[in-house]
Design a protein around this nucleic acid. Structure first.
Lengths: 225, 225
DNA sequence: CAGGTCGCTGAGAGGGCGCTGAGAGCGGTT
DNA sequence: AACCGCTCTCAGCGCCCTCTCAGCGACCTG
Protein backbone atom coordinates (compact mmCIF):
# COMPACT_ATOMS: atom_id res chain seq x y z
CA UNK A 1 0.00 0.00 0.00
CA UNK A 2 1.45 3.31 -1.08
CA UNK A 3 1.29 6.43 1.03
CA UNK A 4 2.25 9.95 0.09
CA UNK A 5 3.13 12.11 3.05
CA UNK A 6 3.21 15.88 2.70
CA UNK A 7 4.80 17.26 5.86
CA UNK A 8 7.36 19.99 6.35
CA UNK A 9 8.49 19.16 9.87
CA UNK A 10 11.34 16.87 8.98
CA UNK A 11 11.65 15.11 12.32
CA UNK A 12 7.99 14.27 12.48
CA UNK A 13 7.99 13.21 8.84
CA UNK A 14 10.92 10.89 9.36
CA UNK A 15 9.44 9.30 12.46
CA UNK A 16 6.15 8.63 10.78
CA UNK A 17 7.85 7.42 7.61
CA UNK A 18 9.73 4.79 9.56
CA UNK A 19 6.71 3.70 11.47
CA UNK A 20 4.59 3.36 8.38
CA UNK A 21 7.32 1.44 6.61
CA UNK A 22 7.47 -0.98 9.48
CA UNK A 23 3.71 -1.29 9.28
CA UNK A 24 4.09 -2.51 5.71
CA UNK A 25 3.34 0.70 3.83
CA UNK A 26 5.47 2.10 1.07
CA UNK A 27 5.97 5.73 1.99
CA UNK A 28 7.04 8.70 -0.05
CA UNK A 29 7.67 11.98 1.73
CA UNK A 30 7.73 15.50 0.30
CA UNK A 31 8.21 18.63 2.36
CA UNK A 32 6.10 21.29 0.70
CA UNK A 33 2.77 21.71 -0.99
CA UNK A 34 4.12 22.18 -4.48
CA UNK A 35 5.98 18.88 -4.47
CA UNK A 36 2.99 17.21 -2.90
CA UNK A 37 0.73 18.44 -5.64
CA UNK A 38 3.09 17.23 -8.29
CA UNK A 39 3.70 13.82 -6.73
CA UNK A 40 0.03 13.17 -6.11
CA UNK A 41 -0.86 14.08 -9.68
CA UNK A 42 1.96 12.13 -11.21
CA UNK A 43 1.84 8.87 -9.27
CA UNK A 44 -0.82 6.64 -7.90
CA UNK A 45 -1.05 6.43 -4.12
CA UNK A 46 -3.54 4.53 -2.05
CA UNK A 47 -3.84 7.36 0.44
CA UNK A 48 -2.33 10.79 1.09
CA UNK A 49 -1.37 12.25 4.47
CA UNK A 50 -1.52 16.01 4.15
CA UNK A 51 -0.37 18.54 6.71
CA UNK A 52 -2.44 21.69 6.62
CA UNK A 53 0.39 24.05 7.53
CA UNK A 54 2.88 23.91 4.70
CA UNK A 55 5.37 26.27 3.08
CA UNK A 56 4.64 27.57 -0.46
CA UNK A 57 1.22 26.02 -1.10
CA UNK A 58 -0.71 25.11 2.06
CA UNK A 59 -2.47 21.78 2.51
CA UNK A 60 -5.75 23.53 2.11
CA UNK A 61 -4.97 24.58 -1.44
CA UNK A 62 -3.22 21.33 -2.32
CA UNK A 63 -6.37 19.38 -1.59
CA UNK A 64 -8.51 21.83 -3.53
CA UNK A 65 -6.20 21.62 -6.51
CA UNK A 66 -6.06 17.84 -6.44
CA UNK A 67 -9.80 17.46 -6.51
CA UNK A 68 -9.99 19.98 -9.31
CA UNK A 69 -7.57 17.94 -11.32
CA UNK A 70 -9.66 14.86 -10.83
CA UNK A 71 -7.37 13.14 -8.34
CA UNK A 72 -9.63 11.34 -5.88
CA UNK A 73 -7.09 9.55 -3.76
CA UNK A 74 -8.35 9.48 -0.14
CA UNK A 75 -6.76 12.25 1.92
CA UNK A 76 -6.16 12.35 5.66
CA UNK A 77 -5.38 15.85 6.89
CA UNK A 78 -3.20 16.76 9.83
CA UNK A 79 -4.45 19.81 11.68
CA UNK A 80 -2.89 21.75 14.50
CA UNK A 81 -5.18 22.13 17.49
CA UNK A 82 -4.66 25.87 17.64
CA UNK A 83 -4.25 26.53 13.96
CA UNK A 84 -6.24 29.02 12.00
CA UNK A 85 -7.91 26.16 10.13
CA UNK A 86 -10.00 23.63 11.99
CA UNK A 87 -11.55 20.25 11.32
CA UNK A 88 -14.61 21.65 9.67
CA UNK A 89 -12.62 23.21 6.90
CA UNK A 90 -10.82 19.99 6.18
CA UNK A 91 -14.04 18.06 5.77
CA UNK A 92 -15.62 20.81 3.71
CA UNK A 93 -12.77 20.69 1.28
CA UNK A 94 -13.18 17.00 0.68
CA UNK A 95 -10.71 15.52 3.12
CA UNK A 96 -11.77 12.00 3.97
CA UNK A 97 -10.49 12.08 7.53
CA UNK A 98 -8.35 14.23 9.79
CA UNK A 99 -6.17 14.01 12.86
CA UNK A 100 -5.27 16.73 15.30
CA UNK A 101 -1.64 17.09 16.26
CA UNK A 102 -0.27 15.61 18.34
CA UNK A 103 -1.71 12.26 17.34
CA UNK A 104 -1.17 8.66 18.32
CA UNK A 105 0.79 6.79 15.72
CA UNK A 106 -1.37 3.70 16.02
CA UNK A 107 -4.47 5.79 15.48
CA UNK A 108 -2.91 7.12 12.29
CA UNK A 109 -2.24 3.62 11.02
CA UNK A 110 -5.75 2.49 11.86
CA UNK A 111 -7.30 5.47 10.08
CA UNK A 112 -5.13 5.02 7.03
CA UNK A 113 -6.11 1.36 6.80
CA UNK A 114 -9.75 2.34 7.13
CA UNK A 115 -9.43 4.88 4.33
CA UNK A 116 -7.73 2.43 2.00
CA UNK A 117 -10.38 -0.14 2.75
CA UNK A 118 -13.17 2.22 1.75
CA UNK A 119 -11.67 3.58 -1.43
CA UNK A 120 -12.17 0.72 -3.83
CA UNK A 121 -11.26 1.14 -7.48
CA UNK A 122 -13.93 0.54 -10.06
CA UNK A 123 -13.68 -2.31 -12.43
CA UNK A 124 -13.00 -1.49 -16.06
CA UNK A 125 -14.93 -2.84 -19.00
CA UNK A 126 -15.02 -6.47 -19.99
CA UNK A 127 -14.85 -7.39 -23.66
CA UNK A 128 -17.61 -9.72 -24.82
CA UNK A 129 -18.25 -11.67 -28.01
CA UNK A 130 -21.01 -14.21 -27.69
CA UNK A 131 -20.02 -16.65 -24.97
CA UNK A 132 -16.46 -15.36 -25.08
CA UNK A 133 -15.34 -12.84 -22.48
CA UNK A 134 -12.03 -11.16 -21.87
CA UNK A 135 -11.32 -9.12 -18.74
CA UNK A 136 -8.31 -6.90 -19.40
CA UNK A 137 -7.83 -5.99 -15.74
CA UNK A 138 -7.79 -9.58 -14.66
CA UNK A 139 -6.06 -10.76 -17.80
CA UNK A 140 -8.62 -13.47 -17.81
CA UNK A 141 -10.46 -15.21 -20.64
CA UNK A 142 -13.59 -17.32 -20.40
CA UNK A 143 -15.61 -19.26 -22.91
CA UNK A 144 -19.05 -20.50 -21.97
CA UNK A 145 -18.21 -19.76 -18.34
CA UNK A 146 -15.08 -21.87 -18.30
CA UNK A 147 -11.70 -20.24 -17.89
CA UNK A 148 -9.21 -20.63 -20.70
CA UNK A 149 -5.53 -20.12 -19.98
CA UNK A 150 -3.55 -18.34 -22.66
CA UNK A 151 0.10 -17.49 -23.11
CA UNK A 152 1.00 -13.81 -23.35
CA UNK A 153 1.15 -13.84 -27.13
CA UNK A 154 -2.08 -15.73 -27.48
CA UNK A 155 -3.71 -13.33 -25.06
CA UNK A 156 -2.42 -10.30 -26.93
CA UNK A 157 -3.75 -11.63 -30.20
CA UNK A 158 -7.16 -12.44 -28.79
CA UNK A 159 -7.45 -9.06 -27.11
CA UNK A 160 -6.68 -7.37 -30.40
CA UNK A 161 -9.27 -9.43 -32.24
CA UNK A 162 -11.88 -8.74 -29.60
CA UNK A 163 -11.23 -5.02 -29.67
CA UNK A 164 -11.92 -5.19 -33.42
CA UNK A 165 -14.73 -7.68 -33.06
CA UNK A 166 -16.65 -7.97 -36.30
CA UNK A 167 -13.99 -6.23 -38.34
CA UNK A 168 -11.74 -8.07 -40.73
CA UNK A 169 -8.15 -7.38 -39.71
CA UNK A 170 -5.20 -8.14 -41.94
CA UNK A 171 -2.16 -10.08 -40.91
CA UNK A 172 -0.15 -6.92 -41.40
CA UNK A 173 -2.28 -5.02 -38.92
CA UNK A 174 -2.04 -7.85 -36.46
CA UNK A 175 1.71 -8.03 -36.77
CA UNK A 176 1.98 -4.30 -36.22
CA UNK A 177 -0.22 -4.26 -33.15
CA UNK A 178 0.35 -7.54 -31.42
CA UNK A 179 3.92 -8.16 -32.44
CA UNK A 180 6.54 -5.49 -32.74
CA UNK A 181 5.79 -2.77 -35.32
CA UNK A 182 9.29 -3.42 -36.63
CA UNK A 183 8.77 -7.16 -36.77
CA UNK A 184 10.50 -8.57 -39.84
CA UNK A 185 10.15 -12.28 -39.36
CA UNK A 186 7.88 -14.78 -41.02
CA UNK A 187 4.26 -13.50 -41.15
CA UNK A 188 3.30 -17.12 -40.78
CA UNK A 189 3.53 -16.60 -37.02
CA UNK A 190 0.08 -15.10 -37.12
CA UNK A 191 -1.39 -18.20 -38.70
CA UNK A 192 0.37 -20.33 -36.16
CA UNK A 193 -1.03 -18.33 -33.26
CA UNK A 194 -4.50 -18.23 -34.76
CA UNK A 195 -4.28 -21.97 -34.71
CA UNK A 196 -3.22 -22.02 -31.09
CA UNK A 197 -6.20 -19.89 -30.21
CA UNK A 198 -8.55 -22.11 -32.16
CA UNK A 199 -7.19 -25.17 -30.41
CA UNK A 200 -7.87 -23.62 -27.03
CA UNK A 201 -11.00 -21.63 -27.75
CA UNK A 202 -12.87 -23.46 -30.48
CA UNK A 203 -11.93 -27.12 -30.42
CA UNK A 204 -13.12 -27.91 -26.86
CA UNK A 205 -16.41 -26.14 -27.49
CA UNK A 206 -17.19 -27.33 -31.02
CA UNK A 207 -17.69 -23.82 -32.27
CA UNK A 208 -15.60 -21.47 -34.36
CA UNK A 209 -15.10 -17.95 -33.06
CA UNK A 210 -12.30 -16.86 -35.38
CA UNK A 211 -13.12 -16.85 -39.08
CA UNK A 212 -10.58 -16.78 -41.89
CA UNK A 213 -11.29 -14.25 -44.62
CA UNK A 214 -9.18 -15.58 -47.40
CA UNK A 215 -6.91 -12.99 -48.96
CA UNK A 216 -7.91 -10.39 -46.35
CA UNK A 217 -7.17 -11.59 -42.88
CA UNK A 218 -9.20 -12.74 -39.88
CA UNK A 219 -12.39 -11.75 -38.18
CA UNK A 220 -13.75 -12.47 -34.75
CA UNK A 221 -17.39 -13.38 -34.98
CA UNK A 222 -19.51 -10.88 -33.03
CA UNK A 223 -21.65 -13.78 -31.92
CA UNK A 224 -18.68 -15.73 -30.72
CA UNK A 225 -19.15 -18.54 -33.20
CA UNK B 1 -32.04 2.11 12.99
CA UNK B 2 -31.28 -0.39 15.70
CA UNK B 3 -28.68 0.36 18.32
CA UNK B 4 -27.27 -2.03 20.88
CA UNK B 5 -25.86 -0.30 23.90
CA UNK B 6 -23.53 -2.14 26.24
CA UNK B 7 -23.08 0.03 29.34
CA UNK B 8 -23.07 -0.87 33.01
CA UNK B 9 -23.63 2.57 34.52
CA UNK B 10 -27.40 2.42 34.72
CA UNK B 11 -28.08 6.12 34.98
CA UNK B 12 -25.94 6.94 31.97
CA UNK B 13 -27.42 4.08 30.03
CA UNK B 14 -30.95 5.21 30.73
CA UNK B 15 -30.25 8.82 29.79
CA UNK B 16 -28.69 7.85 26.53
CA UNK B 17 -31.42 5.32 25.80
CA UNK B 18 -34.08 7.99 26.08
CA UNK B 19 -32.13 10.46 23.99
CA UNK B 20 -31.50 7.98 21.22
CA UNK B 21 -35.12 6.88 21.24
CA UNK B 22 -36.18 10.48 20.84
CA UNK B 23 -33.72 10.78 17.99
CA UNK B 24 -35.52 7.94 16.23
CA UNK B 25 -33.29 5.01 17.08
CA UNK B 26 -34.52 1.68 18.38
CA UNK B 27 -32.36 1.02 21.40
CA UNK B 28 -31.59 -2.14 23.30
CA UNK B 29 -29.53 -1.90 26.46
CA UNK B 30 -27.56 -4.60 28.22
CA UNK B 31 -25.41 -4.09 31.28
CA UNK B 32 -22.49 -6.46 30.95
CA UNK B 33 -20.16 -7.85 28.35
CA UNK B 34 -21.54 -11.35 28.31
CA UNK B 35 -25.04 -10.20 27.49
CA UNK B 36 -23.65 -7.78 24.94
CA UNK B 37 -21.78 -10.55 23.19
CA UNK B 38 -24.84 -12.73 23.08
CA UNK B 39 -27.16 -9.98 21.85
CA UNK B 40 -24.78 -8.76 19.19
CA UNK B 41 -24.25 -12.27 17.87
CA UNK B 42 -27.89 -13.18 17.94
CA UNK B 43 -29.53 -10.09 16.50
CA UNK B 44 -28.75 -7.67 13.76
CA UNK B 45 -28.00 -4.13 14.86
CA UNK B 46 -26.99 -1.22 12.71
CA UNK B 47 -24.47 -0.04 15.23
CA UNK B 48 -23.17 -0.99 18.66
CA UNK B 49 -22.19 1.41 21.45
CA UNK B 50 -19.69 -0.38 23.62
CA UNK B 51 -18.31 0.81 26.93
CA UNK B 52 -14.79 -0.36 27.52
CA UNK B 53 -15.11 -0.75 31.29
CA UNK B 54 -17.59 -3.53 31.86
CA UNK B 55 -18.19 -6.21 34.48
CA UNK B 56 -17.52 -9.86 33.58
CA UNK B 57 -16.21 -9.51 30.01
CA UNK B 58 -14.76 -6.08 29.25
CA UNK B 59 -15.54 -4.15 26.06
CA UNK B 60 -12.13 -4.91 24.79
CA UNK B 61 -12.77 -8.63 24.74
CA UNK B 62 -16.33 -8.28 23.55
CA UNK B 63 -15.16 -6.53 20.41
CA UNK B 64 -12.44 -9.08 19.83
CA UNK B 65 -14.86 -11.94 20.22
CA UNK B 66 -17.39 -10.34 17.90
CA UNK B 67 -14.91 -9.85 15.10
CA UNK B 68 -13.68 -13.38 15.52
CA UNK B 69 -17.21 -14.64 15.17
CA UNK B 70 -17.60 -12.71 11.95
CA UNK B 71 -19.88 -10.00 13.33
CA UNK B 72 -18.94 -6.82 11.52
CA UNK B 73 -21.51 -4.41 12.89
CA UNK B 74 -19.90 -0.98 13.31
CA UNK B 75 -18.81 -0.38 16.89
CA UNK B 76 -18.40 2.93 18.67
CA UNK B 77 -16.42 2.54 21.87
CA UNK B 78 -16.78 4.62 24.99
CA UNK B 79 -13.48 5.20 26.74
CA UNK B 80 -12.76 6.88 30.05
CA UNK B 81 -10.21 9.66 29.77
CA UNK B 82 -8.13 8.27 32.58
CA UNK B 83 -8.80 4.61 31.95
CA UNK B 84 -6.14 2.02 31.43
CA UNK B 85 -7.28 1.66 27.85
CA UNK B 86 -7.01 4.56 25.44
CA UNK B 87 -8.06 5.35 21.90
CA UNK B 88 -5.23 3.40 20.44
CA UNK B 89 -6.47 0.13 21.81
CA UNK B 90 -9.97 0.69 20.53
CA UNK B 91 -8.83 1.30 16.97
CA UNK B 92 -6.38 -1.55 17.02
CA UNK B 93 -9.11 -3.92 17.94
CA UNK B 94 -11.22 -2.85 15.03
CA UNK B 95 -13.51 -0.29 16.62
CA UNK B 96 -14.84 2.04 13.99
CA UNK B 97 -14.99 5.10 16.18
CA UNK B 98 -14.68 6.09 19.83
CA UNK B 99 -15.76 8.76 22.26
CA UNK B 100 -14.11 9.80 25.48
CA UNK B 101 -16.31 10.17 28.52
CA UNK B 102 -17.82 12.54 29.27
CA UNK B 103 -19.18 13.11 25.81
CA UNK B 104 -21.72 15.43 24.23
CA UNK B 105 -24.94 13.66 23.42
CA UNK B 106 -25.28 15.46 20.11
CA UNK B 107 -21.81 14.33 19.11
CA UNK B 108 -22.78 10.75 19.92
CA UNK B 109 -25.81 10.94 17.66
CA UNK B 110 -23.79 12.49 14.85
CA UNK B 111 -21.15 9.79 15.08
CA UNK B 112 -23.67 7.01 15.18
CA UNK B 113 -25.37 8.37 12.08
CA UNK B 114 -22.01 8.60 10.35
CA UNK B 115 -21.19 5.02 11.27
CA UNK B 116 -24.51 3.73 10.05
CA UNK B 117 -24.13 5.65 6.83
CA UNK B 118 -20.73 4.13 6.24
CA UNK B 119 -21.44 0.73 7.63
CA UNK B 120 -24.22 -0.36 5.32
CA UNK B 121 -22.84 -1.43 1.98
CA UNK B 122 -19.30 -1.34 3.30
CA UNK B 123 -16.93 -4.07 2.35
CA UNK B 124 -16.11 -6.47 5.15
CA UNK B 125 -13.13 -5.53 7.23
CA UNK B 126 -11.40 -8.82 6.65
CA UNK B 127 -10.08 -9.89 3.31
CA UNK B 128 -11.11 -13.40 2.38
CA UNK B 129 -10.05 -15.81 -0.34
CA UNK B 130 -11.29 -19.30 0.19
CA UNK B 131 -9.92 -20.53 3.51
CA UNK B 132 -7.42 -17.68 3.55
CA UNK B 133 -8.22 -14.63 5.65
CA UNK B 134 -6.28 -11.46 6.27
CA UNK B 135 -7.33 -8.93 8.88
CA UNK B 136 -5.70 -5.60 8.05
CA UNK B 137 -6.73 -4.00 11.33
CA UNK B 138 -5.02 -6.67 13.36
CA UNK B 139 -2.36 -7.56 10.86
CA UNK B 140 -3.27 -11.16 11.13
CA UNK B 141 -3.35 -13.94 8.57
CA UNK B 142 -5.08 -17.29 8.86
CA UNK B 143 -5.34 -20.29 6.62
CA UNK B 144 -7.92 -22.95 7.36
CA UNK B 145 -8.33 -21.44 10.83
CA UNK B 146 -4.68 -21.69 11.72
CA UNK B 147 -2.67 -18.53 12.17
CA UNK B 148 0.25 -17.97 9.85
CA UNK B 149 3.01 -15.59 10.91
CA UNK B 150 4.47 -13.43 8.18
CA UNK B 151 7.31 -10.95 8.01
CA UNK B 152 6.40 -7.35 7.11
CA UNK B 153 7.37 -7.79 3.48
CA UNK B 154 5.54 -11.05 3.13
CA UNK B 155 2.50 -9.48 4.72
CA UNK B 156 2.63 -6.48 2.41
CA UNK B 157 2.80 -8.73 -0.61
CA UNK B 158 -0.05 -10.93 0.53
CA UNK B 159 -2.23 -7.95 1.39
CA UNK B 160 -1.65 -6.53 -2.06
CA UNK B 161 -2.51 -9.81 -3.73
CA UNK B 162 -5.65 -10.19 -1.63
CA UNK B 163 -6.81 -6.67 -2.40
CA UNK B 164 -6.50 -7.62 -6.05
CA UNK B 165 -7.83 -11.10 -5.53
CA UNK B 166 -8.67 -12.68 -8.87
CA UNK B 167 -6.74 -10.10 -10.85
CA UNK B 168 -3.50 -10.90 -12.53
CA UNK B 169 -0.92 -8.44 -11.22
CA UNK B 170 2.42 -7.95 -12.90
CA UNK B 171 5.73 -7.99 -11.11
CA UNK B 172 6.10 -4.33 -12.00
CA UNK B 173 2.85 -3.41 -10.27
CA UNK B 174 3.85 -5.43 -7.27
CA UNK B 175 7.24 -3.76 -7.07
CA UNK B 176 5.64 -0.33 -7.30
CA UNK B 177 3.09 -0.96 -4.63
CA UNK B 178 4.72 -3.33 -2.18
CA UNK B 179 8.29 -2.26 -2.62
CA UNK B 180 9.41 1.30 -3.19
CA UNK B 181 8.17 2.97 -6.37
CA UNK B 182 11.79 3.91 -7.03
CA UNK B 183 13.01 0.39 -6.40
CA UNK B 184 15.73 -0.39 -8.90
CA UNK B 185 17.01 -3.71 -7.69
CA UNK B 186 16.49 -7.17 -9.07
CA UNK B 187 12.80 -7.85 -9.86
CA UNK B 188 13.61 -11.40 -8.85
CA UNK B 189 12.80 -10.34 -5.28
CA UNK B 190 9.16 -10.72 -6.13
CA UNK B 191 9.65 -14.31 -7.19
CA UNK B 192 11.60 -14.97 -4.04
CA UNK B 193 8.87 -13.55 -1.82
CA UNK B 194 6.18 -15.36 -3.73
CA UNK B 195 8.10 -18.46 -2.86
CA UNK B 196 8.27 -17.53 0.80
CA UNK B 197 4.52 -17.05 0.85
CA UNK B 198 3.96 -20.35 -0.89
CA UNK B 199 6.17 -22.11 1.61
CA UNK B 200 4.15 -20.69 4.49
CA UNK B 201 0.70 -20.62 2.96
CA UNK B 202 0.52 -23.43 0.46
CA UNK B 203 3.00 -26.11 1.36
CA UNK B 204 1.62 -26.94 4.84
CA UNK B 205 -1.90 -27.13 3.49
CA UNK B 206 -1.29 -28.96 0.24
CA UNK B 207 -3.09 -26.34 -1.79
CA UNK B 208 -1.94 -23.56 -4.05
CA UNK B 209 -3.42 -20.13 -3.47
CA UNK B 210 -1.02 -18.11 -5.58
CA UNK B 211 -0.96 -18.95 -9.25
CA UNK B 212 1.77 -18.00 -11.69
CA UNK B 213 0.56 -16.51 -14.94
CA UNK B 214 3.63 -16.93 -17.03
CA UNK B 215 4.77 -13.82 -18.81
CA UNK B 216 2.12 -11.76 -17.04
CA UNK B 217 2.49 -11.99 -13.31
CA UNK B 218 0.70 -13.61 -10.41
CA UNK B 219 -2.86 -14.12 -9.34
CA UNK B 220 -4.42 -14.99 -6.03
CA UNK B 221 -7.11 -17.56 -6.57
CA UNK B 222 -10.50 -16.22 -5.49
CA UNK B 223 -11.25 -19.66 -4.12
CA UNK B 224 -8.04 -19.80 -2.18
CA UNK B 225 -6.62 -22.72 -4.13
C1' DC C 1 -7.67 -30.36 -65.14
C1' DA C 2 -3.23 -27.96 -64.29
C1' DG C 3 -0.83 -24.51 -61.95
C1' DG C 4 -0.37 -21.07 -58.52
C1' DT C 5 -1.41 -18.82 -54.27
C1' DC C 6 -2.77 -18.80 -49.69
C1' DG C 7 -3.62 -20.74 -45.35
C1' DC C 8 -3.11 -24.90 -42.23
C1' DT C 9 -0.40 -28.08 -39.71
C1' DG C 10 3.22 -30.78 -37.13
C1' DA C 11 7.78 -30.83 -35.62
C1' DG C 12 11.59 -28.84 -33.58
C1' DA C 13 15.38 -25.37 -32.12
C1' DG C 14 16.43 -21.62 -29.20
C1' DG C 15 15.90 -18.49 -25.67
C1' DG C 16 13.55 -16.26 -22.06
C1' DC C 17 11.16 -16.66 -17.82
C1' DG C 18 10.27 -18.27 -13.41
C1' DC C 19 11.94 -21.40 -9.64
C1' DT C 20 15.20 -22.58 -6.35
C1' DG C 21 19.04 -22.90 -2.87
C1' DA C 22 22.68 -20.48 -0.93
C1' DG C 23 24.55 -16.68 1.10
C1' DA C 24 25.81 -11.72 2.11
C1' DG C 25 24.38 -7.43 4.41
C1' DC C 26 22.07 -5.15 8.01
C1' DG C 27 19.58 -3.80 11.96
C1' DG C 28 17.93 -5.23 16.34
C1' DT C 29 18.40 -8.08 20.58
C1' DT C 30 20.70 -10.57 24.18
C1' DA D 1 30.47 -9.25 20.61
C1' DA D 2 27.65 -12.87 19.05
C1' DC D 3 23.36 -14.14 17.42
C1' DC D 4 19.15 -13.92 14.91
C1' DG D 5 15.57 -12.64 11.66
C1' DC D 6 14.60 -10.19 7.60
C1' DT D 7 15.69 -8.55 3.10
C1' DC D 8 17.72 -8.85 -1.04
C1' DT D 9 21.22 -10.66 -4.59
C1' DC D 10 22.99 -14.09 -7.44
C1' DA D 11 23.68 -17.96 -10.47
C1' DG D 12 22.19 -22.38 -12.17
C1' DC D 13 18.59 -25.02 -14.11
C1' DG D 14 14.53 -26.70 -16.33
C1' DC D 15 10.55 -25.87 -18.76
C1' DC D 16 7.40 -23.27 -21.45
C1' DC D 17 6.78 -20.07 -24.95
C1' DT D 18 7.99 -18.25 -29.25
C1' DC D 19 9.11 -18.53 -33.76
C1' DT D 20 10.84 -20.96 -37.96
C1' DC D 21 10.41 -24.17 -41.49
C1' DA D 22 8.73 -27.35 -44.78
C1' DG D 23 5.11 -30.11 -46.46
C1' DC D 24 0.32 -30.40 -47.47
C1' DG D 25 -4.40 -29.20 -48.49
C1' DA D 26 -7.88 -25.82 -50.03
C1' DC D 27 -9.36 -22.54 -53.15
C1' DC D 28 -9.08 -19.66 -57.30
C1' DT D 29 -7.93 -18.85 -62.18
C1' DG D 30 -7.26 -20.07 -66.89
Amino acid sequence: MRVLMVEDEERLAETVRRGLSDAGFVVEVVHNGEDGLWAASEHNYDVIVLDIMLPRVNGYKVLEQLRERGVWTPVLMLTAKDGEYDQTDAFDLGADDYLTKPFSFLVLVARLRALIRRGGPERPVVLVAGDLTLDPARRRVERAGREVTLTPREYGLLEFLMRHRGDTVSKGEILESVWDPAFDGDPNVVEVYIRYLRLKLDAPFGRRAIETVRGMGYRLDPDGG
